[in-house]
Amino acid sequence: MSELFVCNAAELVEGGRKLIANGADQIGVLRAGGALHAFLNVCPHQGGPVCEGLVVHKVEEIIDADKTYRGMRFNADVLHIVCPWHGWEFNIATGRCAGDGKLALKRYPVIERDGGIYVAI
């Protein structure tokens, strides 16, 4: 296992992201939900640049105790990253596809050490 330097830790604030090259591949590194995440910038759908997409909280329905619908809201505990080609959403914490849990992004371990951020490949 080797490590790729991403950037200085201070450069990647909450909501920030960096794209780094790994040979011909690109890896997207994001700080979101207070943690660092790294994914291959290739969506399992048709190969879109998923790491360049919108980070947004999961949407959920509000259903009352009597089963009636009361609208929608964002779930403040679950962040998604959305592939910009067609809109597939992925849970940032797990990399799993929100619409089909059998599919997932390729994840890499991220290390924050001595003021630097590294991806293990």
């Binding site: 909501g15 979101a32 919108l54 947004v56 909280h57 964002f74």
Partner: peptide, 9 residues
């Protein structure tokens, strides 16, 4: 816009 300005793209 995102759900939170911290994540605006």
């Amino acid at each position: 816009r995102s759900s939170d300005p911290a994540y605006d793209l």
